[in-house]
């Protein structure tokens, strides 16, 4: 994780949740989020926001097992 990103996480957590960096492991454990951010960027533009009312529960029902 870049120093900039670590600083950003620290600022957001402190500003919005009043939680300071608990320990250096916090930076280490945030490391995999760099991959998440990269993955998120790849998804942008690929899927549109769902305009119509929908829910995950409805999807579970729509795709459920019907055989034995």
């Amino acid at each position: 994780m870049s120093d900039d990103l670590a600083k950003l996480f620290e600022d957001v957590a402190r500003t919005w949740s009043s939680v300071p960096l608990p320990n250096p492991v916090g930076v280490q454990m945030a490391l995999p989020l760099q991959d998440t951010i990269t993955g998120l960027a790849a998804e942008h533009g690929r899927m549109a926001f769902e305009e119509e009312p929908s829910s995950f529960d409805a999807a579970l029902q729509a795709t459920k097992e019907t055989g034995s």
Partner: peptide, 25 residues
Amino acid sequence: LSGRMYGGLGIPAVTYIEALSRRGG
């Protein structure tokens, strides 16, 4: 544990909602 949860505090709410909204599709 505190380290793992700390990372979650830095994710914007719009991103979290995006993640939930994509789930059904």
